Simulated assay, not measured.
Amino acid sequence: MVRFGYTLMTEQSGPRELVRYAQAAEEAGFDFAVSSDHFSPWLVSQGHSPYAWTVLGAVAQATTRLELMTYVTCPTIRYHPAVVAQKAATMQVLSEGRFVLGLGSGESLNEHVVGQGWPSVDSRQSMLVEAIEIIRELHTGELVTYDGEYFRVDSARIWDAPDGGVPLGVAVSGEESIERFAPLGDHLIAVTPEPGLVTAWDAAHRGESRKIGQVPISWDPDEDAAIDRAHDQFRWFGGGWAVNAELPTPAGFAAASSFVRREDVADAIACGPDLDKLAESVLPFLEAGFTDVALVQIGDEQQQRFVDEIAGPLLERVRALG
Rank of each mutant, 00 (worst) to 15 (best):
E107I: 09
S108K: 10
S108Q: 12
E111Q: 13
E111K: 07
E111M: 14
V113I: 14
V113N: 03
V113T: 08
G115A: 05
G115N: 09
G115Q: 08
P119I: 06
V121G: 00
S123K: 15
R124Y: 11
Q125Y: 10
S126H: 14
S126G: 13
L128V: 08
E130D: 04
L138M: 10
T140W: 11
G141D: 03
E142F: 08
V144P: 00
E149N: 11
V153W: 10
I158D: 01
W159Y: 11
W159K: 05
D160C: 13
P162D: 06
D163M: 15
G164N: 05
V166N: 01
G169D: 05
G169Q: 04
A171V: 05
V172G: 04
S173E: 13
E175W: 15
E176H: 15
F181Y: 12
P183W: 11
D186L: 03
H187F: 14
H187Q: 03
H187C: 00
I189P: 00
T192D: 11
P193A: 15
G196N: 12
A204H: 12
A204D: 07
H205I: 04
R206I: 09
G207N: 06
S209G: 08
S209N: 06
S209R: 09
R210D: 10
Q214E: 14
V215G: 01
P216C: 09
S218Y: 09
S218G: 04
W219I: 01
D220G: 05
E223P: 00
Q233P: 02
G240A: 12
A242K: 05
A242M: 11
N244S: 06
P250S: 09
G252A: 06
